[in-house]
Design a protein around this nucleic acid. Structure first.
Lengths: 336, 336
DNA sequence: CTGTTAGCGCGTTCAT
DNA sequence: ATGAACGCGCTAACAG
């Protein structure tokens, strides 16, 4: 059996209450008693039972981050960022992986309702907007990501349209004329909101320049993975498809594209310029280094926590907010 | 106030115990009562309080993975792997990041002792072997990584020497003669155990081939990051240092090296061959794709959980084990 | 098949 | 400065 406060109290010849006071420092204890208690605790190898404290306190000082996968650098970096911020306020981050499965996303929310977490940062992928709107919101929840969310939730997103527009304008200004959007959404496709928005930005950039992009430049993908990027770009090159620029909807995708272009002898940026989206850490060291869009990671993280804390403090009066930091271009060697 | 079992019991006209039985299915309940209880729970929006259940049960069905950082792909992939395995047995994974700080590593172990987790998978970096040996082991703990750990703990490591040897032999067999070991440990350096072991493997491979490698080929690094790999290789090339092969002690390092070689006009694998270590997902799509060493990730994960479960089941009699799966070479385009 | 009692370990409240 | 009592919400153990 584990050692409890009562055990320590007995050995120290005091009440459990006094032990608690020594440990938490919430009340003043005489030096003599303090020392006896500390000695007893040490001697018995006492360890606080956090589960009991949480039950008693009704809160756990733990925030859950619900994401699709940890083995995708995008989410790994996200988790690290939140961890840093929470740690600095003495709280814990717990990561739940959903594998993008609807049920897992729901169940993670549910676990939160089960009082294990004080709040949830939810990065939804498997659920559609309509479905999200039906979620119970009796827990502090902030939605992260590109979804168009019902106004029953706070939401921190990114400027997908603006970012894609900047990326594409950059390619145009550097002389690309046939710019693929890899992972884009053709008209009428039931692609993700992210894909749709970034395709719109790509289109807008062309309009800004007085151009109308050809629809065949929109290359949809099941999943924006490096594999798919790689395979797709190889196929296009082999088919003799004409293009001199690629805007990939994610950096991961760009990785595969750079690999594919290199294999097929296309030089970057001389023959083809490439721009990604996400500004992953690793994109600084691709060959060549990847020009990309920083959607404002740091601001998104701080804002998400601000909104979540507001809910945790039961500041119910405040209306739900939607935050969307400005995106900015990071210029590197994959463009001229 | 949240709804409790008692509230549900009152509305359904039964005892809390019966509500519990309906919810857990641990005892048979008549259909009539079951339905009343379910209706009441639904009506009140009841949600189980897991904190209370955990206190009562004395276990949480949660395993903690303690790692330095989530934004390093190596650890992201590790976390994803454990998450998959644990989820398949109905348990949860929680990730604690330590930033490689000694105190954080200790504190994570401590949180575990505080009954929040049933067991801990500890990836130590900030502590030295001697220090690990002094840790209390009154919790189910399995140590992961390259450390030489006291025999008071189960340990799952990798074959650093063997892997480095295979990597280097491969370079030698493909014609490299001056093979840098980037992130290596010079004689007498107080480098990490990982670094030392991989340097030994590099040396052994040379001896296997009847050669003795020059000591100036051992390039130590503070941190095996892409940045350092990049900067260091640029410097070496600029200084006119002679080499025609690089064994980087991690894949991340190799990323920086490939970028640096490309910038300075050295062709891979024609002028310089490169081999990494870790077999990260992303290494399939570097330019060129990276030849690397798979230390047996999958086996390491399953073994670690087997050992941990043994401890959780209080199978105290069993002696501590140390597992070290065989490493194998993954050949790709960065070598000939 | 259902209820009563009791306690997991802690900390708030009220008393001394 | 210290202690007693009580309850956070759940569930084993023991009735009946």
């Amino acid at each position: 059996m584990p050692v409890t406060m009562n055990d320590v109290a007995r050995v120290a010849g005091v009440s459990a209450m006094t032990v608690s006071n020594v440990l938490t420092g919430r009340r003043v204890v005489s030096d003599a008693t303090r020392e006896r208690v500390e000695a007893a605790a040490e001697q018995l190898g006492y360890a606080l039972n956090l589960t009991a404290r949480h039950l008693r306190a009704g809160r756990t000082n733990t925030i859950a981050l619900v994401i699709p996968n940890l083995d995708h650098p995008y989410f790994g970096e996200l988790a690290a960022r939140f961890d840093r911020l929470l740690r600095s306020t003495g709280r814990h981050l717990v990561v739940e992986q959903t594998g993008s499965r609807r049920e897992a996303e729901l169940s993670a929310l549910n676990v939160a309702r089960l009082r294990l977490y004080d709040g949830v940062l939810l990065s939804v992928v498997g659920m559609r907007s309509e479905e999200i709107a039906t979620l119970r919101s009796d827990m502090p929840v902030v939605i992260l990501g590109e979804q168009d969310v019902s106004n029953r939730f706070d939401h921190v997103g990114m400027d997908n349209v603006g970012g894609a527009r900047i990326a594409t304008s950059h390619l145009l200004s550097r002389g690309s004329r046939r710019i693929l959007i890899l992972g884009g959404a053709p008209e009428g496709d039931d692609a993700s909101g992210m894909s749709l928005a970034r395709t719109n930005g790509w289109r807008q950039a062309h309009h800004d320049a007085g151009m109308t992009p050809e629809d065949d430049l929109i290359i949809p993908l099941e999943i924006p993975s490096a594999e798919h990027g790689h395979a797709t770009i190889l196929r296009l090159v082999r088919d003799g498809f004409a293009f001199d620029g690629v805007f990939t909807v994610t950096d991961t995708l760009a990785t595969g594209v750079l690999a594919g272009l290199s294999e097929s002898g296309r030089r970057v940026p001389e023959d083809v310029q490439v721009v990604g989206f996400d500004s992953l850490d690793g994109s600084r060291f691709t060959v060549p280094p990847l020009t990309t869009i920083d959607p404002g990671h740091e601001e998104m993280a701080t804002e998400a926590l601000r909104l979540l804390d507001r809910l945790i403090e039961r500041d119910e009066g405040a209306p739900r907010e939607r935050v969307k930091p400005p995106a900015r271009l990071i210029r590197r060697g994959s463009t001229r």
